[in-house]
């Protein structure tokens, strides 16, 4: 079980760095959803299925949809251009 814990932690870290490094905002939002998804797996491993469900529903579903819609609404103004 400890390797699964480690795996989800690594996935979380990688996805979190992907959020920072990705140029495409939609891809970054997808990566942020992956962080939440891996975190909910971690919660299941830690025997907190209730928290895992909330994390999956809010972190992956709700905030992902909300962020994606915000980027869509901003249009060209939301383009990330460093």
């Amino acid at each position: 079980m400890i390797w699964l814990l480690g795996l989800s932690l690594v996935v979380m870290l990688a996805a979190a760095f992907a959020v920072l490094l990705l140029r495409d905002l939609l891809a970054a939002i997808a990566a942020a959803s992956v962080v939440s998804l891996a975190l909910s797996v971690l919660f299941v491993i830690l025997r907190a299925p209730d928290v895992a469900l909330a994390e999956a529903a809010v972190g992956t579903g709700l905030s992902g949809v909300l962020l994606a819609y915000t980027v869509h609404r901003l249009g060209a103004a939301g383009r990330y251009d460093p």
């Binding site: 209730d50 469900l53 909330a54 529903a57 809010v58 949809v65």
Partner: peptide
């Protein structure tokens, strides 16, 4: 596991 908060969020989505 689950309940009003989680299910309600899924309903909203």
């Amino acid at each position: 596991p689950g309940g009003g908060f989680q299910g309600g969020t899924i309903l909203a989505v």
